[in-house]
Design a protein around this nucleic acid. Structure first.
Lengths: 372, 372
DNA sequence: CTGAAAGCGCTAACAC
DNA sequence: GTGTTAGCGCTTTCAG
């Protein structure tokens, strides 16, 4: 279904943009003088205040915009921030990209996108966005540990490089992470405090970074409360509500099902919530379900999701500034930000008939691991 | 909380990329010959098959990558697709961006992002992404009718320009839309068929395009079934689950509340679902709630959301190809794609005690408007 | 068929 | 302080 072209030939014209040369000619100056005042370089060489003013005025009048292609060619900055997205998708990525472009814009940068998920795109992503596109810096977003070539290529680069939500420190690359272990421990202790001992974990297959940290925290928690992880209590699926739903479905039909499920992301938790209620189980009456990330939907699921809040804005600001700041030394830095437990309605006391003997109950009641 | 830099100075080196000059020198040819072979231009001037071959081989061997800055400067294509995002956000936008970058990549293009939402970014977005960045084409994504300057500026451009999800035809600009009226009519007829006559509408404030079309379809439906739109039955809020929740909350506490609510997007519907159940109402037992878009979460809400499926992939493919295809004439085209009704669990028969007299009931039972 | 040369808009020595 | 002069890597006349 496609309406026929409604004619109308596009206006071509589009008067050529003003160049420095134009300004120079108009003012009877040399192009390099114009360049000196316009190119920002605060005061490499002194310029007569009056000349500077004249140039500035004329530039404004003619709506001068520097041509980044030209300055880029000449070796100057391209004011382009390359963003290479790993496996993360969905609302989380959307929020992240939004924050990133906003932050980059504020610093006078644009953002080029390169997706590294999907098939053999990894090479493509890096080649195209980076080598080819001459970005001033690269942001690696999400877990990319499974793409060794990408990381390798990236490391052989003189560009500032910052990895966001990688989940772990990367050799030779600056990282900005949330403290995944701490976050996971917080929700788990919260569940423990509600009396849960049979806790399941839904993770994401093939994740070496953030999600893996959350899994490790889960294992540590189970160890700490002295419960073994039963068969079927750990599921690793695709990062999609469907994955969460399938995992939860399987887990909740186990002969001895868990009383709580810790999903490694809200996206999975949303699927789990759906599956549980499809099975006729009440949440949190029959089973508690918690997530991680605190995406915008988390407060609006039914019931509202208990989860770990990600300090998204701060993380993005930190990462972007770290990548774009010219003043940093070449040192690689690893930032780890504090997550926060958000208790909503999807977590509740363990069902009475499944409570552990009193002797064990006190273990989970210690304050959530906010110390460290 | 920030660990001290763990030292390690970044490797600088990064051997300069191969240029055409390098290849020319290595082969004892002139740079322009190399350019002729490598720049793709299929056969402007004949080139000796053997020479071409030698160049190609050497280029591959040295992993030659053209420098888009240089070709861009010289007036050639930059292979950059500019994407200017209007008000749409969240998972829908994420899915869209994903599809867009994928499609663009397939055509050898990268995507630059410019967000036009937020404060006075409109000017910024266009200036920076377009004038400044020398894209080969621009994709306008989502409703931007409220940003007159943006559209005006864009129109004064020689660039191929395609508007996606604008919701309406735009003078002088090619558009790719879903048939919003038809989609909305489908869900509404579906509700009608279930006996609903008191239907509320939750829209988004200040939207002139897609969402407005959905509202018009709502009005037309109410007219058709001979019901007046009662006070409080139309809410227009911010595009966020919170907006949907507040709107639904107000609407469902009306003295005579609607038996069904049509939300103009799934994001709003998710909020509405939450609000209804928070109020102790069963969905669809007490109230039916339907959405529009069929985002990935729609199948996993509780209960699963009845909605209108957006042919995202086709729309994106169409838009990107239309924008990037060199072979198109300058004609502006308006594509309108067919949506599909997806019936899930959030819609059901009108509650018995609120059924309309039998005489009226038959009206809604005509087949959904899938003809046309 | 191929080479020489100009120039896209800008930056950065290097002069004066 | 400001002008001159080279290019950055590439496309594109214009000559052979």
């Amino acid at each position: 279904m496609k309406n026929g072209p409604s004619s109308s030939t596009r206006t071509v014209g589009h008067a050529r943009a003003t160049t420095m040369k134009d300004i120079a000619r108009a003012l009877g100056l040399s192009q390099s003088t114009v360049s000196r005042v316009l190119s920002g370089a605060p005061s490499v060489v002194p310029i007569a205040a009056e000349t500077r003013e004249r140039v500035l005025v004329e530039a404004r009048r003619r709506a001068y915009r520097p041509n980044p292609l030209a300055s880029g060619l000449r070796g100057a900055r391209t004011r382009l921030l390359g963003a290479i997205m790993g496996e993360i998708l969905g609302p989380f990525a959307a929020g992240a990209m939004d924050a990133i472009t906003a932050e980059a814009n504020a610093l006078g940068y644009n953002t080029v996108l390169g997706n590294a998920h999907g098939q053999a795109d990894e090479a493509m992503a890096i080649r195209t966005v980076l080598e080819t596109r001459h970005c001033d810096a690269i942001l690696l977003i999400g877990d990319t540990r499974d793409q060794p070539r990408l990381l390798e290529d990236l490391r052989n680069t003189a560009l500032p490089l910052v990895a966001l939500w990688q989940g772990v420190a990367l050799d030779g690359i600056s990282t900005v992470n949330v403290d995944n272990r701490l976050g996971a421990t917080c929700v788990l202790e919260h569940l423990g405090g509600l009396g849960h001992r049979q806790v399941g974990f839904v993770g994401i297959a093939n994740r070496q970074g953030d999600i893996n940290q959350r899994k490790l925290a889960y294992r540590a928690f189970m160890r700490k409360i002295g419960e073994e992880v039963r068969d079927g209590f750990i599921e690793e699926v695709v990062h999609h509500p469907a994955g969460g739903a399938e995992a939860a479905h399987r887990m909740l039909r186990l002969p001895e099902r868990p009383t709580a499920i810790f999903c490694a992301s809200d996206v999975l938790a949303i699927g789990a919530l759906h599956a549980a209620q499809n099975l006729g189980l009440r949440v949190p009456g029959d089973v508690s379900i918690v997530g991680f990330d605190d995406i915008s939907f988390a407060a609006y699921t039914v019931p509202a999701l208990t989860t770990i809040h990600m300090p998204m804005a701060e993380m993005v600001r930190l990462a972007v500034q770290e990548a774009l700041r010219p003043d940093v030394g070449d040192a690689v830095k690893n930032f780890s930000l504090l997550p926060a437990l958000v208790i909503r309605q999807s977590s509740g006391r363990v069902p009475a008939q499944r409570r552990a003997p009193a002797a064990h109950r006190s273990i989970g009641s210690s304050r959530p691991g906010l110390s460290r």
